[in-house]
Design a protein around this nucleic acid. Structure first.
Lengths: 339, 339
DNA sequence: TAATTTCATCGAAACGTTTCGACTAATCGT
DNA sequence: ACGATTAGTCGAAACGTTTCGATGAAATTA
C-alpha cells in the first residue's frame, strides 16, 4: 500500500505539501497539484483513515448498538441510520446485543470507545434493566449517545410513542363496537411491550371496560408466539371479540389461530397489529395496524447524534433533546365489518 | 481520555513496560503488573485501537457490504455475520448499497480500504453488472473478500444454491400432479432471480412441460409485487394450477391474490415460496417453501474470511474456496391437497 | 569464580497522517 | 525603492500505540 510519503517522493514535494493539496487547507500552486494528482493516480494511493483519525481525534464513524435485527422494525431503523450516516460522512460500526442482553453491555461499550467511535446510537430494544448502566459516571467517559426508546430527562432520545399508539389502536376497536378486547403483548420485560400494555389498559378503563388479566397473553413478538397466545386467550375467554397484538408478526399468528378455531375475522373477532410491516396489507384478511416510519426514526437519530458530536467537538455544551413520533392508525379489513 | 503514557507515569514505569504487561508478550514482574493494573483502573484507561492498528497493521474489523436489509433474508445473514465476527474478535463495519446499485461501488470500496478493513464480505445482492468490478486489477489492491452469491473460479464464495432449490420446488409441484406451473420471479436483473427462473424452466422441460413465457410474471420481491404478478398471471392463463414464487413475501402476495380471485389454495392452486421466513408457517394457508439457513451462510462467510485474512497476514497464498448450501424443501398446506 | 543465561525493564524508532512555525521569493502599496 | 503582505513550500512535532535492541541485575552453569 502506498503512503503519503510515496506520493510526496514521486511528486518531488514534501509530505506536508501533499497533505495541504489534499485538504486544501493551504494554497498550493496549480502545477504542483497536478503532479501530486498524477502521483496519486499512478500509485493508487488511498489515505489511511486510521492515521488521520489518530491526529484529528475524530474517527468519522458512529457505532450502532442494536438487537433483534431479524425483526422488521429494527432492520428498517438500521437502514435509515446507515443512509443518514453515509450522507454525513460517517462509517457505521454495528454491534448486536443478543438476549438475555443484561450481561455483556460493558465490554461492548468499552470496545466502542476503544475504536474511538465519534458517537453511539443505542438502538437495542429496552429489555429489563439493560439500560441500567446509563448514569453520569459511565456517560462521562463515553462519546455522545442517542437513545432509541423511552424519553428520559438529560438524555437525547428518539421514540416512537408506543403508549399513544396503543391508545389509538384500542380506541379504534372500541369505536368499532368491540367490548371484550384482549391483548397479545410482546415479552413484558421489553419496555415497548409494557408501554403498549399500559395503553391498552388505560384506554379500556377510560371507556368503562375492564382490563382483566385473563384478557392478556404474553408472547415473544413472533408469529408462532402470537398464534399460541391467541389460542390460549380464546380458550380461556371465548367471548373475546377483539385482539390487539403488539406487533404485526404476532397479529399474523393471531389471524392464523382464529382461522383454525373457526372464528371469522373481522366478523367474530377484530384484530389490530402494530408496525405496519409491508406484508400486513396482504395478510388474510389485510391487517389494521399502527404505522411508524422506522427509517425516519433512524435518520433522526443520526441527525441528533451529529448535532451532539459537532457540539462536543466545538467544546460547546451538549443540549439533550427528546423527539417523539406518534404512530398512525392504518385501517384495513381485519378490524372493520363490511356491510 | 487517559493514554498509555498516563498509565506509565502513574505506575512509575516506562510506556513499553505497560504495553508488555498488557499484551503479555514479555515477562513482567507480578508486583509491577499490580501497580499497572491499579493505575489503569484509577484512570479508566482504554487502549486506543486506532493507534494500535496503525502499528500492528491490522484493524481487527471486517466490512460487510449488504443491501436490501429490510428483507428478511439479508437481515438474517447479517445477524449471522455479526455473531461470528464478534466471536473472532472483529468489529463489523456496515455499508449498504441502494438501488440502482451499479453506480457507486468504487467509492464504497475506497472508503473500506481507507478504513483499513482486514477483509470484506460482499453480501449485496448480485444485480445486473454490479459485480463487474471484480477483476485482478481491483482485487489486488483490496483486502481479502468473501462473496455471497454465485460461485466463480478464483473467488471465495458462499452460495445458497438457488438453481437447485428451484428445481426441488418445481419437482415437488409436479409430484403433486400439477401441470401448469407458473413462476412469479423476482427482479430479473437479480442473479438469484434468474437462477430460480432457470430451475423452473429446466425442471419443466425435463418433465415434458412447456415453460411458456406467458407463465412468467416479474415482481420486485415484495408482497405487493407478488400480488400484482399473480393477478396478471391468472388473468392471462386461467388454467394455471400452481405458482412458484421466488420469495416467501411474493408468495404471500400470491396467496392474497388467489383469495381475492376466489381460487382455493391448494385445491385450485398450489403455491410454493422461497426463503422459509418464520412467518410463512402462519400464512393462510401455511406456505410450502425452500429453506436456507441464512445465519449459517453469514457465519460461514466470516469463517472463510478469517481464514483468508490469517493466510494473508502470514504471507501465505490465498486459497479460494466455494461453499454451496442447498436449500431444503419444507412442505406445508399450500401445496398438498388434504383428503 | 568467571562466563553465560535469564529476567525485568527502558529508550527510541516506527506506523501514516495533520498541522504549526518557519523560510523564500514574488507581489503589493506608497 | 523599501518595508509589508502573500503564495507556496518545507521540516519537525505530535497523535497513541507496539516492538526492537540494549542494559543491568540476578540466577545458573562449568
Amino acid at each position: 500500500m502506498a503512503t503519503i510519503v510515496d506520493v510526496a517522493t514521486r511528486a518531488g514535494v514534501s509530505v506536508s505539501t501533499v497533505s495541504y493539496a489534499l485538504s486544501g487547507s493551504r494554497p498550493i500552486s496549480e502545477e504542483t497539484k497536478q503532479r501530486i494528482q498524477q502521483a496519486i493516480a499512478e500509485l493508487g494511493y488511498q489515505p489511511n483513515k486510521l492515521a488521520r483519525s489518530l491526529v484529528s481525534r475524530r474517527s468519522e464513524s458512529i457505532a450502532v448498538v442494536s438487537s433483534r435485527l431479524e425483526f422488521p422494525g429494527p432492520a428498517r431503523t438500521l437502514v435509515g441510520i446507515e443512509q443518514q450516516a453515509v450522507e454525513f460522512g460517517y462509517s457505521v460500526i454495528l454491534s448486536l446485543l443478543h438476549e438475555p442482553a443484561e450481561a455483556n453491555v460493558m465490554p461492548i461499550l468499552d470496545a466502542l470507545v476503544a475504536r474511538q467511535a465519534d458517537g453511539i446510537i443505542w438502538a437495542a430494544s429496552e429489555i429489563g434493566d439493560n439500560r441500567g448502566w446509563v448514569g453520569p459516571e459511565r456517560l462521562n467517559n463515553l462519546p455522545p449517545i442517542v437513545f432509541l426508546g423511552k424519553p428520559r430527562p438529560g438524555l437525547t432520545t428518539i421514540s416512537a410513542d408506543s403508549y399513544a399508539g396503543a391508545c389509538i389502536a384500542i380506541q379504534h376497536l372500541i369505536d368499532q363496537g368491540r367490548r371484550t378486547i384482549a391483548l397479545v403483548t410482546g415479552s413484558l420485560n421489553h419496555r415497548a411491550a409494557s408501554l403498549r400494555f399500559a395503553g391498552w389498559e388505560e384506554t379500556l378503563q377510560k371507556n368503562q371496560l375492564v382490563p382483566d388479566s385473563s384478557l392478556v397473553a404474553e408472547a415473544d413478538w413472533t408469529a408462532a408466539g402470537g398464534n399460541q397466545a391467541a389460542r390460549a386467550l380464546l380458550a380461556q375467554r371465548p367471548a373475546v371479540d377483539a385482539i390487539f397484538a403488539a406487533s404485526d408478526l404476532m397479529a399474523l399468528g393471531v389471524l392464523s389461530a382464529a382461522r383454525n378455531l373457526g372464528r371469522r375475522v373481522p366478523d367474530d373477532l377484530a384484530v389490530v397489529g402494530f408496525d405496519n410491516v409491508p406484508e400486513s396489507e396482504f395478510y388474510s384478511p389485510p391487517l389494521t395496524t399502527m404505522y411508524t416510519r422506522r427509517d425516519q426514526v433512524g435518520r433522526l437519530a443520526v441527525q441528533e447524534l451529529h448535532r451532539l458530536i459537532e457540539a462536543k467537538h466545538r467544546g460547546a455544551p451538549l443540549e439533550p433533546s427528546a423527539r417523539t413520533i406518534t404512530p398512525e392508525l392504518v385501517i384495513r379489513a381485519s378490524s372493520v365489518v363490511q356491510r
